[in-house]
Design a protein around this nucleic acid. Structure first.
Length: 293
DNA sequence: CCGCGGGCCTGAGAGC
DNA sequence: TGCTCTCAGGCCCGCG
């Protein structure tokens, strides 16, 4: 499911239930998600207060009073919901991603705020890991990550330097979390469309001979900023699994201009082209060959 | 360094 | 209705 806007939406939804509250009880309802839970997973959570809930790329990070950090990744189909202790969902009734039972509720945090925070993940590509804050810099899951696309470190100069000399395609480079961390298939397709750049273009064309950013790089960075900010504002995109923590859908999918729109007319003014789909690095790319060069 | 295929999982939707 | 097949917001590994 989730790319940066979806994870950020989840973070904002969990904040009121978790920040400043203590984890009274933690339940793991099976032995593993993508990986087995650490042996001391529950023990390191129970009794700890969540000082803050942050995000790095597509990871949620809960700062615990013990000095540990709980790292959470939603994989493809993970979602969180916030439920009050009497079984009623806050604020509205939760609608499961699929109209099924709770078979895929794998982790529950019972908070002193009175809320239960439930992690549901049918495909179980998601995972959780507890890391001592002092070891965060050496954590393999985080170590190679590039800059946050909405952070100060991400700009045209940085992007040009990171892609200079790369033989790979522009699309593959943007999906590479070492280049920039948080984009996925949807928002890469959308950002490339908005900047009129072909997904097939060589990534190295974002830089000139002196490794300085071209106008393409500047356009692309602006498009990435725009599409991510707009998607966050819309509560993310709900195609199959993504839900806000209230169970509500995100609605940015209605604003897609190319993703999942094969065969539709290109929305670029005066273009007249048609949205096409092809497989690139094993993933669907949606684009307009007429106006993306 | 790069692309590709396969794997991890479950479920939805299409086609027959 | 039900089967089979393809595909899915991620990411990792090994091969050539």
């Amino acid at each position: 499911m989730p790319e940066l806007p979806e994870v950020e939406t989840v973070r904002r939804g969990l904040q009121p239930a978790m920040e400043g509250a203590r984890i009274v009880r933690a339940e793991t309802r099976r032995a593993d998600l993508r990986f087995p839970f650490q042996d001391d997973f529950v023990a390191r959570l129970e009794g700890q207060t969540v000082a803050g809930l942050g995000r790095r790329a597509k990871y949620l990070m809960a700062d615990l009073s013990s000095g540990d950090v709980l790292l959470m990744h939603l994989g493809m189909s993970g979602s969180f919901r916030v439920v009050t202790v009497d079984g009623h969902v806050t604020p509205g009734e939760f609608h499961y991603p699929r109209n099924e039972d709770r078979a895929h509720d794998h982790v529950v945090f019972h908070m002193s705020s009175g809320a239960a925070v439930v992690f549901n993940d049918p495909r179980r590509f998601g995972y959780m890991k507890i890391i001592a804050r002092s070891l965060l810099d050496e954590e393999p899951l985080l170590k190679g990550l590039g800059p946050e696309p909405l952070g100060n470190a991400f700009d045209a100069a940085m992007l040009a330097a990171a892609t200079a000399g790369k033989a790979t395609s522009l699309k593959a480079a943007l999906l590479d979390q070492r280049v920039v961390a948080g984009l996925g298939n949807i928002y890469v397709c959308e950002a490339l469309f908005r900047s009129h750049l072909s997904p097939k273009r060589k990534a190295s064309t974002l830089a000139d001979k002196k490794r300085a950013p071209t106008d393409h790089a500047k356009r692309l960075v602006a498009s990435i900023h725009d599409v991510l900010n707009q998607a966050i504002e819309a509560g993310g995109s709900s195609l199959r699994d993504h839900r806000q923590t209230s169970g509500e859908l995100g609605y940015f999918q209605h604003s897609f201009q190319v993703y999942d729109r094969e065969g539709e007319k290109c929305q670029t003014r005066g273009c007249g082209g048609t949205v096409k789909r092809f497989v690139q690095n094993g993933r669907s790319t949606f684009w307009c060959p007429t106006c993306q060069k």
